[in-house]
Design a protein around this nucleic acid. Structure first.
Lengths: 192, 192
DNA sequence: TGCGGAAAGCGAATACCATTAGTCTTGAAA
DNA sequence: TTTCAAGACTAATGGTATTCGCTTTCCGCA
């Protein structure tokens, strides 16, 4: 039976992502993941050194896709000849849409405390710099660090609270209040 | 040997909180918790129906304390005769200080996906309403829902990103950029 | 004063979980 | 044809939460 290759790292990640999406990250066990792939749990160790390493690969993939979605959204804004503020609002909406479409993976990537599961932060730094420069157009170079941190916080916090049902008042339109909050922040930055 | 009471629910929660603070929530096991209390794991089930129930009680306690800290901060602002905007900035700083002083417990309370670990959201609704009314002074009744959601998101998101080392640019003063972001948001709200 | 029930602890067992070590099968290269 | 490494396997280890039935101790009531 053995030898004919039955899985690849990509296939494993794809299946793991699907199971996390369907049943949540806590429910992912190597035994059930392996069974879904037609192999046994120990065989997974041929491809990933540990469960933590597998999750880190998943998180890296997630980060790449998140940035790709934001970049694509900004490209649309550029094509439409939008102002810096309008482009940032567009990016903020793309961010939230992606996070909600990949809720379990998003939460997993953003809340892992185990250092072994965390992607290397340095990979993403140049990607974030693009957006920090865009914010610098609104607020000046000196304030751009506070601006990028605040915008990331607002987007991330809103999505996290929404996904965890932590908003006490369930009434109202979540899309509309998100838009209002983002625009208030950007306007407040531009005001200075 | 049995019967002489060795623990109470309060004592269990206190020890669990201390262990989570010291070693992280993931490292909390009922066996080690029980050992630290001088009993065995199954005995814990006399006091909590499950580990999830124990964690929910911990989260409820955390929420009560967080609101108490914010209320106390606001009381100082009221005593000092501050404006609504200054009071809100003061509350935002108290929020972040509390979250950072109880990092593991904060993350645990805000990121549990298991419904059994989540406190009843309705308990906190009246407490949040106080702050929503304060925001209404800045922005009007109609926009106050977006304002409270945005402010919570900004505070929560900033703290979460900070605690998880997700801010790519590690330079700069985290206190100063938090203050700048909060004030930008509040100014943007007041501007309308 | 004595008795019964309830409460609080325990040991043992169950069913998972990630991980490791060692073994077998296979196909391709020599 | 033989060799060898890669990919899968079985079996075992130590950890986890949880359940069950049992024992011991105390308190209230007769």
């Amino acid at each position: 039976m053995p030898y004919p290759v039955q899985v690849t790292p990509e296939r494993i990640l794809e299946q793991a992502g699907a199971m996390i999406d369907a049943e949540g990250a806590a429910a992912l066990s190597l035994g059930r993941l392996a069974a879904a792939l037609g192999i046994k749990a120990p065989s997974l160790y041929r491809y990933f050194a540990s469960k933590d390493a597998l999750i880190r690969a998943l998180n890296e993939q997630h980060n790449r896709r998140l940035f790709a979605v934001m970049d694509a959204a900004d490209a649309e804004g550029v094509d439409a000849g939008e102002t810096a503020l309008a482009r940032l609002a567009r990016i903020a909406h793309a961010y939230r849409a992606f996070a909600k479409a990949n809720a379990s993976a998003y939460v997993l990537a953003m809340t892992t405390r185990e250092p072994d599961q965390l992607p290397d932060v340095r990979d993403d730094e140049p990607r974030v710099l693009v957006y920090q420069r865009l914010l610098a157009e609104l607020v000046g170079e000196a304030e751009s660090l506070a601006a990028i941190r605040g915008l990331l916080a607002l987007m991330h916090g809103y999505v996290m609270l929404e996904l965890h049902n932590q908003f006490r008042r369930s009434g109202g339109d979540f899309d509309a209040t998100y838009d209002a909050a983002v625009r208030a922040f950007l306007n407040g930055l531009a005001q200075r």
